[in-house]
C-alpha cells in the first residue's frame, strides 16, 4: 500500500481556559492518500475545522496540539520549528477558507497577492510568476484573466473571489489542500461550480483534498471517503458510498436520516433529539450516549474508540465488535 499524503494519529487539540482544559479534538486518526478527497463532516463545534487548522499548523493560541502526531508524506510536521512549518504552508499544504469576501486582502491587487505567494515558495522571477498567475486564474475559470489579474478583490463577485482563493491555495502545487467549508458562504448555484473547479484542479495536480463541511450533499458528490466527527471525536470513517448507504454509527444514521429525500414522503423532517454537548460538558463514555436511540449501559461508562469493523471502515460504537484485520 502506498504511503498516505497525510497521516494523522491520535491527534488531540486542547484549549486551556479559566474553567479547565477544553478538548476540541480528541484522539482522532485518519489517513489521506494522494489524489483522494476525504470529506470531514459534523455539526458546528464538532472539531472539524480545528482538525484542519491543526494539520496546517494554524491553531490560535492558547490552543495547542497536546498529543498525537501529524505526518506529511511520512515526515512529522506537528512538532517542527515555526519557520519550517511556514515553508510547508502554502507550498505543500494549501488552504481554502470559508468566506471568499474576507479571505483576500482588500488593499492589494489580485496579481500582487498571487505573485507574492508564488515568489515566497518558488524561485521564479516577477515576470514568470505573473505568467503563472494568469495561467492559474485561467485554470480556475476567471474569464479574461490576463486583464482582470490587476483588479482588486472588491471588483469580483463572491464566486469569482473563491476561484481566486483556490488559485492562491494551489499556486505552489501543494500535495494536500484543506478546504474549510469552501462553499458555505456562496450561492447554491455557484457551489457546484466551485467544487468542480477545486476537484478538477486537484486531480490534475494529483493533490489530496481534506474537505471540511457540514453539507452532506457536497460530501456525497465530492468525497471518496468520509469522516464523521462528533464532539471532537471521530464517530465513523469509511468510503463515502458505504457510509451513506449503510451507516454504522447511530449518529451517522441520524445524520443521513435527517437529509430530506424526494422519494420518501414525510410530514416532518427527521432530526436527532437534543444537541451536541458543549466542550466543557462532554458526557462520560460515548459522547453521543444521551442522544443515542440504541444506548445501553456500557455506552455510559466506557468510551469506544474508532476501531475497524469492516474493510476500510472504522466506527466508534459498542454495537459493533472490533474486527482485527487479517
Amino acid at each position: 500500500m502506498a504511503e498516505p499524503v497525510l497521516s494523522v494519529k491520535n491527534l488531540t487539540v486542547q484549549f486551556p481556559t479559566r474553567r479547565g482544559v477544553l478538548t476540541a479534538v480528541d484522539d482522532i486518526s485518519f489517513d489521506i492518500m494522494a489524489g483522494e478527497v476525504l470529506g470531514v463532516v459534523g455539526e458546528s463545534g464538532a472539531g472539524k475545522s480545528m482538525t484542519g487548522a491543526a494539520v496546517i499548523g494554524l491553531i490560535e493560541p492558547p490552543g495547542r496540539i497536546s498529543g498525537g502526531e501529524i505526518r506529511l508524506k511520512g515526515e512529522r510536521i506537528d512538532n517542527i520549528a515555526p519557520d519550517a512549518m511556514r515553508a510547508i504552508r502554502g507550498r505543500r499544504i494549501g488552504m481554502i477558507f470559508q468566506d471568499p469576501l474576507t479571505s483576500l486582502n482588500p488593499l492589494y491587487r489580485i496579481s500582487q497577492q498571487i505573485i507574492e505567494t508564488i515568489r515566497t515558495h518558488l524561485h521564479v522571477g516577477e515576470a514568470e510568476a505573473r505568467k503563472r498567475a494568469i495561467k492559474l486564474l485561467d485554470d480556475v475559470g476567471i474569464p479574461d484573466a490576463a486583464r482582470r489579474i490587476d483588479d482588486y478583490p472588491h471588483q469580483f463577485s463572491g464566486g469569482m473571489r473563491q476561484r481566486v482563493v483556490i488559485a492562491l491555495a494551489l499556486c505552489a502545487e501543494p500535495d494536500l489542500v484543506i478546504a474549510d467549508e469552501p462553499t458555505t458562504a456562496l450561492d447554491v448555484s455557484v457551489q457546484a461550480q466551485i467544487i468542480d473547479v477545486m476537484k478538477e484542479l486537484c486531480r490534475e495536480r494529483n493533490a489530496a483534498i481534506m474537505l471540511v463541511t457540514h453539507d452532506m450533499g457536497v460530501i456525497a458528490e465530492t468525497a471518496d471517503r468520509v469522516a464523521v466527527m462528533y464532539a471532537g471525536r471521530l464517530a465513523e470513517i469509511g468510503p463515502v458510498r458505504d457510509v451513506i448507504k449503510n451507516a454504522f454509527h447511530p449518529y451517522t444514521q441520524g445524520l443521513m436520516g435527517s437529509i430530506p429525500s424526494l422519494t420518501t414522503d414525510l410530514d416532518r423532517l427527521l432530526q436527532i433529539p437534543g444537541s451536541m454537548p458543549r466542550l466543557s460538558a462532554i458526557p462520560k463514555g460515548c459522547p453521543f450516549n444521551p442522544r443515542c436511540p440504541k444506548v445501553f449501559d456500557r455506552c455510559r461508562i466506557e468510551r469506544p474508540d474508532a476501531d475497524p469493523v469492516a474493510p476500510d471502515r472504522r466506527v466508534a460504537c459498542w454495537l459493533y465488535p472490533e474486527v482485527t484485520p487479517a
Binding site: 494554524l58 502554502g90 488552504m95
Partner: peptide, 25 residues
C-alpha cells in the same frame, strides 16, 4: 481577520504579513 489567516496559510513570511498585509490595513 480572515485575510491575515489566509496570508499565514499561504506561508508568507512574518514580515510580509505584519508590515505588508496587516499594517497597510
Amino acid at each position: 481577520t480572515e485575510y491575515i489567516r489566509f496570508a499565514r496559510a499561504r506561508g508568507l513570511s512574518q514580515r510580509a504579513i505584519h508590515f505588508g498585509h496587516a499594517l497597510k490595513n
